[in-house]
Design a protein around this nucleic acid. Sequence first.
RNA 1: CGGGGCGUGGCUCAGUUUGGUUUAGAGCGCUUGGUUUGGGACCAAGAGGUCGUGCGUUCAAGUCGCACCGCCCCGACCA
Length: 417
Amino acid sequence: MLWSRSFIPTLKESPQEAETISHRLMLRAGLVRLLMAGVYSYLPLGLKVLTNIERIIREELDKRGANEVLLPALQPQELWIKTGRDKEIGEVMIRFVDRRGRRLCLGPTHEEVITDLVKNYLNSYKQLPIILYQIQTKFRDEIRPRFGLVRACEFIMKDAYSFDQDEEGLEKSYQLMHQAYVSIFRRCGLDFLTVEADPGVMGGKVSHEFMVPAKDGEDVILVCPRCKLSRGYQEDKPQQSCPKCGINLEKNNAIEIGHIFKLGTKYSQALEVSFIDPQGRQRPVIMGCYGIGVSRLIPAIIEQHHDSEGIIWPKEISPYKVIILALDVMDKKIMELSFRLHKELEDTSIETLFDDRNESAGVKFKDADLLGIMLQIVVGKEYLKNGNIELRIRETKEKILEKKENVIARIKKILYG
RNA sequence: CGGGGCGUGGCUCAGUUUGGUUUAGAGCGCUUGGUUUGGGACCAAGAGGUCGUGCGUUCAAGUCGCACCGCCCCGACCA
Protein backbone atom coordinates (compact mmCIF):
# COMPACT_ATOMS: atom_id res chain seq x y z
CA MET A 1 0.00 0.00 0.00
CA LEU A 2 1.27 3.44 -0.92
CA TRP A 3 1.07 5.94 1.91
CA SER A 4 0.31 8.69 -0.62
CA ARG A 5 -2.91 6.84 -1.53
CA SER A 6 -3.85 5.99 2.05
CA PHE A 7 -6.08 7.60 4.63
CA ILE A 8 -3.61 7.73 7.51
CA PRO A 9 -4.02 11.14 9.14
CA THR A 10 -1.25 11.35 11.74
CA LEU A 11 -1.06 14.14 14.27
CA LYS A 12 2.09 15.80 15.48
CA GLU A 13 0.52 16.85 18.74
CA SER A 14 -1.97 15.20 21.05
CA PRO A 15 -5.52 16.44 20.60
CA GLN A 16 -7.08 18.13 23.58
CA GLU A 17 -9.79 15.47 23.79
CA ALA A 18 -7.38 12.77 24.94
CA GLU A 19 -5.51 12.32 28.18
CA THR A 20 -4.54 8.68 28.50
CA ILE A 21 -1.52 7.37 26.60
CA SER A 22 -3.41 4.82 24.54
CA HIS A 23 -6.13 7.28 23.59
CA ARG A 24 -3.59 9.89 22.51
CA LEU A 25 -1.59 7.43 20.46
CA MET A 26 -4.70 6.04 18.80
CA LEU A 27 -5.66 9.53 17.67
CA ARG A 28 -2.14 10.58 16.73
CA ALA A 29 -1.45 7.43 14.72
CA GLY A 30 -4.72 7.84 12.84
CA LEU A 31 -6.41 4.69 14.15
CA VAL A 32 -9.72 6.21 15.22
CA ARG A 33 -11.62 9.48 15.33
CA LEU A 34 -14.28 10.63 17.75
CA LEU A 35 -17.82 11.20 16.49
CA MET A 36 -19.27 11.96 19.92
CA ALA A 37 -18.50 10.98 23.50
CA GLY A 38 -18.02 7.22 23.60
CA VAL A 39 -18.55 6.73 19.86
CA TYR A 40 -15.65 6.29 17.46
CA SER A 41 -14.99 5.74 13.77
CA TYR A 42 -12.28 3.25 12.85
CA LEU A 43 -9.88 4.50 10.21
CA PRO A 44 -8.00 2.08 7.93
CA LEU A 45 -5.13 1.43 10.33
CA GLY A 46 -7.46 0.98 13.31
CA LEU A 47 -9.63 -1.37 11.30
CA LYS A 48 -6.61 -3.43 10.30
CA VAL A 49 -5.58 -3.80 13.93
CA LEU A 50 -9.12 -4.74 14.87
CA THR A 51 -9.26 -7.31 12.07
CA ASN A 52 -5.98 -8.84 13.22
CA ILE A 53 -7.32 -9.24 16.75
CA GLU A 54 -10.54 -10.75 15.42
CA ARG A 55 -8.57 -13.21 13.32
CA ILE A 56 -6.70 -14.46 16.37
CA ILE A 57 -9.95 -14.83 18.29
CA ARG A 58 -11.61 -16.76 15.46
CA GLU A 59 -8.63 -19.08 15.07
CA GLU A 60 -8.46 -19.92 18.76
CA LEU A 61 -12.21 -20.44 19.14
CA ASP A 62 -12.75 -22.35 15.90
CA LYS A 63 -9.85 -24.62 16.84
CA ARG A 64 -11.75 -25.54 20.02
CA GLY A 65 -14.96 -26.34 18.20
CA ALA A 66 -16.91 -23.15 18.83
CA ASN A 67 -19.37 -22.08 16.10
CA GLU A 68 -19.50 -18.52 14.85
CA VAL A 69 -22.89 -16.85 14.42
CA LEU A 70 -24.03 -13.27 14.01
CA LEU A 71 -26.97 -12.15 16.11
CA PRO A 72 -29.04 -9.00 15.64
CA ALA A 73 -28.24 -5.84 17.55
CA LEU A 74 -31.91 -4.92 17.22
CA GLN A 75 -33.97 -6.85 19.76
CA PRO A 76 -37.46 -6.93 21.25
CA GLN A 77 -37.63 -5.64 24.83
CA GLU A 78 -40.08 -8.47 25.50
CA LEU A 79 -37.23 -10.99 25.72
CA TRP A 80 -35.60 -8.92 28.44
CA ILE A 81 -38.83 -8.64 30.39
CA LYS A 82 -39.06 -12.44 30.43
CA THR A 83 -35.67 -12.84 32.11
CA GLY A 84 -36.23 -9.90 34.42
CA ARG A 85 -33.08 -8.20 33.20
CA ASP A 86 -35.18 -5.45 31.68
CA LYS A 87 -35.21 -3.73 35.08
CA GLU A 88 -31.85 -5.03 36.29
CA ILE A 89 -29.93 -3.53 33.39
CA GLY A 90 -31.90 -0.32 33.59
CA GLU A 91 -30.82 2.73 31.66
CA VAL A 92 -27.67 1.14 30.26
CA MET A 93 -29.90 -0.41 27.58
CA ILE A 94 -30.86 1.87 24.71
CA ARG A 95 -34.62 1.49 24.11
CA PHE A 96 -37.07 2.94 21.66
CA VAL A 97 -40.36 2.32 19.89
CA ASP A 98 -40.49 1.73 16.15
CA ARG A 99 -43.19 3.00 13.76
CA ARG A 100 -45.28 -0.09 14.35
CA GLY A 101 -45.23 0.54 18.03
CA ARG A 102 -42.86 -2.34 18.79
CA ARG A 103 -40.77 -1.81 21.88
CA LEU A 104 -37.19 -2.45 20.84
CA CYS A 105 -33.71 -2.13 22.23
CA LEU A 106 -30.13 -2.23 20.99
CA GLY A 107 -28.42 -5.26 22.49
CA PRO A 108 -26.00 -4.47 25.32
CA THR A 109 -25.26 -8.23 25.47
CA HIS A 110 -26.90 -11.33 23.99
CA GLU A 111 -27.82 -13.96 26.57
CA GLU A 112 -31.54 -13.52 25.86
CA VAL A 113 -31.24 -13.69 22.07
CA ILE A 114 -28.92 -16.68 22.03
CA THR A 115 -31.04 -18.58 24.54
CA ASP A 116 -34.14 -17.88 22.48
CA LEU A 117 -32.33 -19.10 19.37
CA VAL A 118 -31.16 -22.32 20.95
CA LYS A 119 -34.58 -23.00 22.43
CA ASN A 120 -36.03 -24.01 19.09
CA TYR A 121 -33.06 -26.18 18.20
CA LEU A 122 -32.32 -28.09 21.34
CA ASN A 123 -34.14 -31.36 21.97
CA SER A 124 -31.73 -33.99 23.16
CA TYR A 125 -28.64 -34.38 25.31
CA LYS A 126 -27.04 -35.80 22.15
CA GLN A 127 -26.80 -32.25 20.78
CA LEU A 128 -24.73 -31.12 23.75
CA PRO A 129 -22.30 -29.65 24.47
CA ILE A 130 -22.31 -26.78 22.02
CA ILE A 131 -20.54 -23.43 22.05
CA LEU A 132 -21.69 -20.49 19.91
CA TYR A 133 -19.95 -17.19 19.55
CA GLN A 134 -20.11 -13.94 17.65
CA ILE A 135 -18.05 -10.82 17.13
CA GLN A 136 -20.47 -7.96 17.06
CA THR A 137 -21.25 -4.38 17.97
CA LYS A 138 -22.81 -3.78 21.38
CA PHE A 139 -24.61 -0.68 22.55
CA ARG A 140 -24.53 0.59 26.10
CA ASP A 141 -25.69 3.96 27.32
CA GLU A 142 -22.76 4.33 29.70
CA ILE A 143 -23.02 6.78 32.59
CA ARG A 144 -19.56 7.98 31.76
CA PRO A 145 -17.76 6.84 28.65
CA ARG A 146 -14.04 7.37 29.01
CA PHE A 147 -10.47 6.74 27.92
CA GLY A 148 -11.37 6.48 24.25
CA LEU A 149 -12.18 2.91 23.31
CA VAL A 150 -11.76 1.63 26.87
CA ARG A 151 -15.32 2.52 27.81
CA ALA A 152 -17.38 3.33 24.77
CA CYS A 153 -21.15 3.41 24.18
CA GLU A 154 -20.79 1.50 20.92
CA PHE A 155 -18.09 -1.13 20.95
CA ILE A 156 -17.13 -4.49 19.57
CA MET A 157 -17.39 -7.57 21.70
CA LYS A 158 -16.76 -11.22 21.21
CA ASP A 159 -19.44 -13.03 23.16
CA ALA A 160 -19.60 -16.79 23.41
CA TYR A 161 -22.19 -19.02 25.02
CA SER A 162 -21.84 -22.63 26.09
CA PHE A 163 -24.65 -25.12 26.55
CA ASP A 164 -24.13 -28.27 28.61
CA GLN A 165 -26.24 -30.97 30.15
CA ASP A 166 -24.69 -30.86 33.61
CA GLU A 167 -22.29 -29.01 35.89
CA GLU A 168 -19.44 -31.29 34.88
CA GLY A 169 -19.95 -30.36 31.24
CA LEU A 170 -20.09 -26.68 32.12
CA GLU A 171 -16.81 -27.01 33.98
CA LYS A 172 -15.22 -28.49 30.85
CA SER A 173 -16.58 -25.77 28.59
CA TYR A 174 -15.49 -23.15 31.08
CA GLN A 175 -11.95 -24.49 31.19
CA LEU A 176 -11.86 -24.79 27.41
CA MET A 177 -12.80 -21.14 27.01
CA HIS A 178 -10.39 -20.14 29.76
CA GLN A 179 -7.58 -21.81 27.80
CA ALA A 180 -8.70 -20.15 24.59
CA TYR A 181 -8.56 -16.77 26.32
CA VAL A 182 -5.04 -17.40 27.56
CA SER A 183 -3.92 -18.25 24.01
CA ILE A 184 -5.72 -15.26 22.49
CA PHE A 185 -4.32 -12.73 24.94
CA ARG A 186 -0.80 -14.13 24.68
CA ARG A 187 -0.91 -13.84 20.90
CA CYS A 188 -2.05 -10.25 21.38
CA GLY A 189 1.18 -9.69 23.29
CA LEU A 190 -0.59 -8.96 26.56
CA ASP A 191 0.60 -9.41 30.11
CA PHE A 192 -2.58 -10.26 31.94
CA LEU A 193 -3.91 -11.62 35.20
CA THR A 194 -7.01 -13.61 36.03
CA VAL A 195 -9.10 -12.60 39.01
CA GLU A 196 -12.23 -14.04 40.59
CA ALA A 197 -15.02 -11.58 40.10
CA ASP A 198 -18.57 -10.68 40.98
CA PRO A 199 -20.98 -11.95 38.29
CA GLY A 200 -23.20 -8.86 38.71
CA VAL A 201 -26.22 -8.63 36.40
CA MET A 202 -25.04 -11.55 34.31
CA GLY A 203 -26.01 -13.89 37.11
CA GLY A 204 -24.55 -17.24 38.12
CA LYS A 205 -22.12 -17.99 40.91
CA VAL A 206 -18.67 -18.16 39.39
CA SER A 207 -16.92 -15.68 37.15
CA HIS A 208 -13.40 -14.68 36.28
CA GLU A 209 -12.08 -11.47 34.83
CA PHE A 210 -8.99 -11.11 32.66
CA MET A 211 -7.17 -7.96 33.63
CA VAL A 212 -4.34 -6.12 31.91
CA PRO A 213 -2.28 -4.09 34.36
CA ALA A 214 -2.01 -0.60 32.88
CA LYS A 215 -1.30 2.81 34.35
CA ASP A 216 -4.46 4.30 32.89
CA GLY A 217 -6.74 1.37 33.57
CA GLU A 218 -10.10 2.20 35.14
CA ASP A 219 -10.25 -0.89 37.36
CA VAL A 220 -8.19 -1.57 40.44
CA ILE A 221 -6.86 -5.01 41.34
CA LEU A 222 -4.65 -6.35 44.11
CA VAL A 223 -1.58 -8.26 42.94
CA CYS A 224 1.03 -10.23 44.88
CA PRO A 225 4.37 -8.77 43.77
CA ARG A 226 6.01 -12.18 44.11
CA CYS A 227 3.63 -14.84 42.75
CA LYS A 228 1.29 -12.55 40.75
CA LEU A 229 -1.78 -13.93 42.50
CA SER A 230 -4.45 -11.31 42.02
CA ARG A 231 -7.94 -10.39 43.09
CA GLY A 232 -10.45 -7.61 42.77
CA TYR A 233 -10.05 -4.56 44.97
CA GLN A 234 -12.86 -3.61 47.32
CA GLU A 235 -12.52 -0.52 49.41
CA ASP A 236 -14.65 -1.78 52.29
CA LYS A 237 -12.63 -4.97 52.71
CA PRO A 238 -9.52 -5.02 54.93
CA GLN A 239 -6.08 -5.01 53.33
CA GLN A 240 -5.52 -8.55 52.12
CA SER A 241 -2.27 -10.39 52.00
CA CYS A 242 -1.16 -13.15 49.67
CA PRO A 243 -2.27 -16.54 51.06
CA LYS A 244 0.77 -18.20 49.47
CA CYS A 245 3.56 -15.71 50.09
CA GLY A 246 2.19 -13.92 53.13
CA ILE A 247 3.27 -10.53 51.84
CA ASN A 248 0.99 -7.59 51.21
CA LEU A 249 -0.79 -7.34 47.87
CA GLU A 250 -0.15 -4.23 45.83
CA LYS A 251 -2.84 -2.04 44.29
CA ASN A 252 -2.62 -1.91 40.52
CA ASN A 253 -4.71 -0.18 37.87
CA ALA A 254 -5.93 -2.50 35.16
CA ILE A 255 -8.12 -2.76 32.08
CA GLU A 256 -10.69 -5.55 32.03
CA ILE A 257 -10.38 -7.28 28.67
CA GLY A 258 -12.39 -10.42 29.24
CA HIS A 259 -14.95 -11.86 31.61
CA ILE A 260 -16.22 -15.42 31.75
CA PHE A 261 -19.25 -16.62 33.70
CA LYS A 262 -20.81 -19.89 34.81
CA LEU A 263 -24.41 -18.88 34.36
CA GLY A 264 -26.09 -22.15 35.30
CA THR A 265 -29.80 -22.19 34.47
CA LYS A 266 -30.73 -18.55 34.98
CA TYR A 267 -31.61 -17.95 31.33
CA SER A 268 -32.66 -21.43 30.35
CA GLN A 269 -35.23 -21.51 33.14
CA ALA A 270 -36.57 -18.03 32.45
CA LEU A 271 -36.89 -18.74 28.73
CA GLU A 272 -37.72 -22.42 29.16
CA VAL A 273 -34.88 -24.04 27.27
CA SER A 274 -34.63 -27.71 28.09
CA PHE A 275 -33.51 -30.99 26.63
CA ILE A 276 -34.28 -34.64 27.22
CA ASP A 277 -31.56 -36.39 29.19
CA PRO A 278 -30.51 -40.09 28.74
CA GLN A 279 -33.17 -41.06 31.27
CA GLY A 280 -35.88 -39.34 29.25
CA ARG A 281 -36.35 -36.44 31.67
CA GLN A 282 -36.76 -32.79 30.68
CA ARG A 283 -33.91 -30.71 32.11
CA PRO A 284 -32.94 -27.07 31.75
CA VAL A 285 -29.73 -26.59 29.81
CA ILE A 286 -26.70 -25.34 31.77
CA MET A 287 -25.09 -22.24 30.33
CA GLY A 288 -21.87 -20.30 30.45
CA CYS A 289 -21.04 -17.01 28.78
CA TYR A 290 -17.69 -15.61 27.79
CA GLY A 291 -16.92 -12.06 26.72
CA ILE A 292 -13.90 -10.31 25.26
CA GLY A 293 -13.84 -6.56 24.77
CA VAL A 294 -12.42 -6.75 21.26
CA SER A 295 -12.19 -3.03 20.61
CA ARG A 296 -10.94 -2.49 24.15
CA LEU A 297 -8.01 -4.79 23.43
CA ILE A 298 -6.54 -2.11 21.17
CA PRO A 299 -5.97 0.44 23.96
CA ALA A 300 -4.96 -2.38 26.31
CA ILE A 301 -2.25 -3.50 23.88
CA ILE A 302 -1.06 0.06 23.33
CA GLU A 303 -0.89 0.72 27.08
CA GLN A 304 1.58 -2.17 27.33
CA HIS A 305 3.41 -1.63 24.05
CA HIS A 306 4.59 1.91 23.46
CA ASP A 307 7.52 4.22 24.09
CA SER A 308 8.04 7.97 23.95
CA GLU A 309 7.93 7.91 20.15
CA GLY A 310 4.75 5.95 19.63
CA ILE A 311 3.13 2.55 19.41
CA ILE A 312 5.10 -0.72 19.21
CA TRP A 313 2.75 -3.34 17.79
CA PRO A 314 3.21 -7.01 18.65
CA LYS A 315 3.86 -9.16 15.58
CA GLU A 316 0.39 -10.52 14.98
CA ILE A 317 -1.34 -7.21 15.65
CA SER A 318 0.85 -4.90 13.55
CA PRO A 319 -1.43 -3.36 10.87
CA TYR A 320 1.37 -3.77 8.34
CA LYS A 321 4.39 -5.95 8.99
CA VAL A 322 6.82 -3.68 7.15
CA ILE A 323 7.03 0.01 6.37
CA ILE A 324 9.42 1.20 3.65
CA LEU A 325 10.86 4.67 4.07
CA ALA A 326 12.12 6.10 0.81
CA LEU A 327 14.11 9.04 2.08
CA ASP A 328 14.35 10.97 -1.15
CA VAL A 329 11.44 10.51 -3.52
CA MET A 330 13.18 12.68 -6.15
CA ASP A 331 16.00 10.17 -6.45
CA LYS A 332 15.28 7.67 -9.22
CA LYS A 333 17.49 4.90 -7.85
CA ILE A 334 15.97 5.09 -4.40
CA MET A 335 12.45 5.04 -5.76
CA GLU A 336 13.12 2.25 -8.21
CA LEU A 337 14.52 0.02 -5.49
CA SER A 338 11.76 0.95 -3.05
CA PHE A 339 9.03 0.08 -5.53
CA ARG A 340 10.71 -3.22 -6.34
CA LEU A 341 11.08 -4.06 -2.66
CA HIS A 342 7.46 -3.14 -2.02
CA LYS A 343 6.27 -5.40 -4.80
CA GLU A 344 8.43 -8.33 -3.76
CA LEU A 345 7.19 -8.17 -0.17
CA GLU A 346 3.54 -7.85 -1.17
CA ASP A 347 3.93 -10.69 -3.68
CA THR A 348 4.96 -12.93 -0.80
CA SER A 349 1.94 -11.77 1.23
CA ILE A 350 3.94 -9.62 3.61
CA GLU A 351 1.73 -6.62 4.17
CA THR A 352 3.82 -3.55 3.50
CA LEU A 353 3.21 0.18 3.73
CA PHE A 354 5.41 2.17 1.37
CA ASP A 355 6.00 5.74 2.57
CA ASP A 356 6.30 7.34 -0.85
CA ARG A 357 5.29 10.80 0.34
CA ASN A 358 7.46 13.73 -0.61
CA GLU A 359 8.38 14.44 2.99
CA SER A 360 11.67 15.00 4.74
CA ALA A 361 13.51 12.09 6.31
CA GLY A 362 12.66 13.37 9.79
CA VAL A 363 8.93 13.36 9.13
CA LYS A 364 9.07 9.80 7.82
CA PHE A 365 11.08 8.50 10.77
CA LYS A 366 8.78 10.18 13.27
CA ASP A 367 5.63 8.92 11.60
CA ALA A 368 6.99 5.39 11.25
CA ASP A 369 7.83 5.27 14.95
CA LEU A 370 4.42 6.70 15.81
CA LEU A 371 2.54 4.10 13.75
CA GLY A 372 4.49 1.32 15.40
CA ILE A 373 4.72 -1.05 12.45
CA MET A 374 7.13 -3.75 13.64
CA LEU A 375 9.72 -3.59 10.85
CA GLN A 376 11.09 -0.51 9.10
CA ILE A 377 13.17 -0.51 5.94
CA VAL A 378 15.15 2.63 5.17
CA VAL A 379 16.22 3.28 1.60
CA GLY A 380 18.47 6.32 1.40
CA LYS A 381 22.07 7.48 1.16
CA GLU A 382 23.48 4.13 2.19
CA TYR A 383 21.85 2.55 -0.80
CA LEU A 384 23.33 5.13 -3.16
CA LYS A 385 26.79 4.72 -1.61
CA ASN A 386 27.09 0.98 -0.95
CA GLY A 387 23.91 -0.58 -2.25
CA ASN A 388 22.77 -1.39 1.27
CA ILE A 389 19.35 -0.86 2.76
CA GLU A 390 18.62 -0.69 6.43
CA LEU A 391 16.28 -2.91 8.40
CA ARG A 392 15.14 -1.61 11.76
CA ILE A 393 13.22 -3.40 14.46
CA ARG A 394 10.76 -0.91 15.94
CA GLU A 395 10.74 -2.48 19.37
CA THR A 396 14.47 -2.92 20.02
CA LYS A 397 15.69 -0.13 17.71
CA GLU A 398 18.16 -2.67 16.34
CA LYS A 399 19.56 -1.72 12.89
CA ILE A 400 20.91 -4.03 10.21
CA LEU A 401 22.56 -2.75 7.00
CA GLU A 402 22.47 -5.26 4.17
CA LYS A 403 21.68 -5.93 0.55
CA LYS A 404 18.03 -6.17 -0.42
CA GLU A 405 17.94 -9.98 -0.73
CA ASN A 406 19.42 -10.46 2.71
CA VAL A 407 16.99 -8.00 4.23
CA ILE A 408 14.04 -9.86 2.70
CA ALA A 409 15.41 -13.14 4.01
CA ARG A 410 15.75 -11.66 7.48
CA ILE A 411 12.21 -10.31 7.40
CA LYS A 412 10.88 -13.75 6.52
CA LYS A 413 12.87 -15.26 9.34
CA ILE A 414 11.52 -12.74 11.82
CA LEU A 415 7.92 -13.18 10.66
CA TYR A 416 7.82 -16.92 10.12
CA GLY A 417 10.67 -18.18 12.32
C1' C B 1 -26.38 13.10 38.31
C1' G B 2 -22.61 15.92 41.79
C1' G B 3 -17.58 18.35 41.54
C1' G B 4 -13.68 20.42 38.40
C1' G B 5 -11.43 21.91 33.64
C1' C B 6 -11.96 23.34 28.68
C1' G B 7 -14.38 25.33 23.84
C1' U B 8 -10.54 31.07 19.21
C1' G B 9 -8.87 28.25 11.09
C1' G B 10 -7.55 20.99 10.05
C1' C B 11 -4.11 20.42 14.94
C1' U B 12 -1.64 22.82 19.35
C1' C B 13 -2.34 27.35 21.59
C1' A B 14 -1.81 33.16 22.79
C1' G B 15 -5.32 37.09 23.47
C1' U B 16 -10.48 37.14 27.98
C1' U B 17 -8.00 39.15 34.39
C1' U B 18 -8.89 45.39 33.57
C1' G B 19 -14.47 45.66 27.01
C1' G B 20 -11.86 50.09 22.66
C1' U B 21 -4.15 49.74 18.30
C1' U B 22 -7.46 43.44 16.65
C1' U B 23 -9.54 45.48 9.63
C1' A B 24 -9.02 38.58 15.24
C1' G B 25 -2.98 36.50 16.14
C1' A B 26 1.26 32.68 16.35
C1' G B 27 3.36 27.83 15.37
C1' C B 28 2.31 23.39 12.78
C1' G B 29 -0.48 21.68 8.61
C1' C B 30 -2.56 23.15 3.57
C1' U B 31 -1.89 25.64 -1.81
C1' U B 32 1.75 27.69 -5.60
C1' G B 33 6.93 28.47 -7.09
C1' G B 34 12.01 27.54 -5.92
C1' U B 35 16.01 25.30 -3.01
C1' U B 36 16.21 20.75 -0.03
C1' U B 37 16.08 15.20 1.78
C1' G B 38 19.38 10.01 7.51
C1' G B 39 15.36 12.21 12.95
C1' G B 40 9.25 16.68 12.57
C1' A B 41 14.16 21.52 6.43
C1' C B 42 14.46 26.70 4.19
C1' C B 43 12.88 31.11 1.23
C1' A B 44 8.86 33.70 -1.14
C1' A B 45 3.78 34.34 -2.16
C1' G B 46 -1.19 32.69 -0.76
C1' A B 47 -5.90 30.25 1.04
C1' G B 48 -8.47 29.23 5.35
C1' G B 49 -12.18 32.07 11.34
C1' U B 50 -20.43 32.20 12.62
C1' C B 51 -13.91 33.44 18.55
C1' G B 52 -19.23 26.47 20.72
C1' U B 53 -24.78 28.47 20.32
C1' G B 54 -28.55 31.90 21.78
C1' C B 55 -30.24 35.99 24.45
C1' G B 56 -28.76 40.19 27.10
C1' U B 57 -25.63 44.61 29.09
C1' U B 58 -23.00 48.58 26.45
C1' C B 59 -21.66 53.94 22.11
C1' A B 60 -18.55 49.39 21.59
C1' A B 61 -18.21 42.16 23.30
C1' G B 62 -13.36 36.86 21.63
C1' U B 63 -13.32 39.75 26.44
C1' C B 64 -18.95 41.22 30.98
C1' G B 65 -24.01 38.56 32.54
C1' C B 66 -27.64 34.61 31.93
C1' A B 67 -29.16 30.15 29.56
C1' C B 68 -28.04 26.15 26.60
C1' C B 69 -24.74 22.70 23.76
C1' G B 70 -20.25 19.89 23.32
C1' C B 71 -15.54 17.55 24.96
C1' C B 72 -12.19 15.89 28.97
C1' C B 73 -11.04 14.58 34.16
C1' C B 74 -12.68 13.01 39.38
C1' G B 75 -16.87 10.57 41.88
C1' A B 76 -21.21 7.47 42.11
C1' C B 77 -22.13 3.25 38.59
C1' C B 78 -20.57 -0.66 35.49
C1' A B 79 -20.05 -6.45 31.54
